[in-house]
Nucleic acid binder design. Structure first.
Lengths: 188, 188
DNA sequence: ACAGTCGATGGCAGTTACTGACATCGACTG
DNA sequence: CAGTCGATGTCAGTAACTGCCATCGACTGT
C-alpha cells in the first residue's frame, strides 16, 4: 500500500482546469487547487514552478513530439515541406479531441497571464524547431524563419480549428493556413 | 511651483532600467525602483499595472505608429508589400539608437517573465496590424497571416540587428528577413 | 527481521508583488 | 476665498512563491 494517492500531477492539473473554468484563473488560489487534489499548497509548488504552469504540464511532451517528428522527415524534403509534414502528423496524434481543446483554450484566452505563458511555450517550440532544422543543415536565418513560419501556421490554423464546429480536423486548417501564408508572402 | 517633480513615469522607467541592468529583474523590488525615482511603491503601481510593465511603457506608442504607418500606405500595394514598407518606416523612425536597444534587450532576454511580456506585446501588435489590414479589405485568414509574417520578420530581423555590430541599420536586417521568409515559404 | 536511506509530502515562517481605503495638500476654478 | 481636483503618501491586507525542517511508508542490504 502506497503512502499517497498516485498521480499527484494529474490530479492537480485536473483540479486546476476545473477551477479555472468554474471561477476563473485569478479567482482561484493555489491552495484551492491543491485542496481539491487532496494535497497542500506547498506540494503544488513542488510540482509546478508557478500557478500558470499547471496548465502547461504536457508542453514539453508536445515539443519533444514536434522535434522527433521533424527529425524523422527525410532530409530530401525542403524545410517548409518537412515542417508541413510535421504539423500534419502532430495534428493527428495530439489534437483529436476538439471539445477538450476548446475548453482549455477558452480558459487560457480568458486570462492575460495564461496567454503570456502560452506564447512563451510557442516561442520555446519555435526555438526547438529551429535547432532541429539547423541539424538538417538549414542555415540561419532560414532556420529561424522557417520555424517561426511553422508556428504562425500552427497558431492561425489552431485558432480557426478552435473557432470551428469541430467537424473538420485540425490538419485541414493547418493546410489552409500554410497555403494562405505561401500566397501572402508571394505577394498575392 | 509644482508640488511634485515632473515626469514621474520617465523617472520610474529610467530607474527601473538602471536597476534591472545593475542587479537583475528579480533582485530588484518595486520599492527600490520607486525610491530611486523619489517616489513610493504605491505610486509605482499606480503608474504600472505590474513590475514588468515599467519596461514597456512606450509599447502602445510603437503599436500606434505601426498602425498609422500601415494605414497610410496606398491601398494599391499588396498586403505584404504594405507591411514591408511599414517595417522600413518604423525602423528608421524608432530604432536609430543601436546601443540603447541592445542594453534594453539584454535586460529583457535575461528574464523569462520579461520575455513573456515582450511576446504578448508583439502579439498585441500583430492583432493591431491584422485589424488594420482588414480595414484595407484583406480577408481572414490572410490578414492574420500577413500580420504574423510581419511580426516574424520583425522578430528575426531585430534579433540579428541586436547581435550585429551596429554598423548596418535595422532596415537592412528586416529586408534580409523578409527576403528570407519569402524564399523559405516558396519551398527553397 | 532490522537498520538505514530515500522520496514525496506536510507545516510554518518569511519575502514580495500587488490592492483597497483613506488622508494630504498644492494647483486650479469660479 | 471656498471648493474641487489630481498626484501622491500611508497603512493594512491577500496571495504567490521560497526555504527549512519534520514525517513516515517503501525500498535495500545484510
Amino acid at each position: 500500500m502506497s503512502r499517497w494517492q498516485p498521480n499527484a500531477r494529474g490530479r492537480l492539473e485536473q483540479a486546476a482546469l476545473e477551477l479555472f473554468a468554474e471561477r476563473g484563473f485569478e479567482q482561484t488560489t493555489a491552495a484551492q487547487i491543491a485542496e481539491r487534489a487532496g494535497l497542500t499548497e506547498r506540494t503544488f509548488f513542488r510540482h509546478y514552478a508557478d500557478k500558470r504552469e499547471v496548465l502547461f504540464g504536457q508542453a514539453h511532451l508536445l515539443e519533444q513530439a514536434f522535434v522527433d517528428t521533424l527529425t524523422g522527415v527525410p532530409e530530401s524534403a525542403a524545410p517548409i515541406d518537412a515542417l508541413a509534414s510535421t504539423l500534419e502528423t502532430i495534428a493527428e496524434q495530439h489534437f483529436g479531441h476538439h471539445e477538450r481543446a476548446r475548453q482549455r483554450q477558452a480558459v487560457i484566452m480568458a486570462n492575460a497571464e495564461l496567454r503570456e505563458r502560452e506564447l512563451i511555450k510557442l516561442a520555446s517550440l519555435s526555438a526547438a524547431l529551429a535547432t532541429a532544422l539547423r541539424r538538417r543543415g538549414v542555415p540561419d536565418p532560414a532556420a529561424s524563419l522557417t520555424a517561426e513560419a511553422g508556428i504562425t501556421v500552427f497558431k492561425v490554423g489552431f485558432g480557426r480549428w478552435i473557432g470551428d464546429s469541430g467537424e473538420r480536423p485540425l490538419a485541414y486548417f493547418l493546410r489552409e493556413a500554410l497555403d494562405g501564408l505561401k500566397a501572402v508572402t508571394a505577394g498575392m
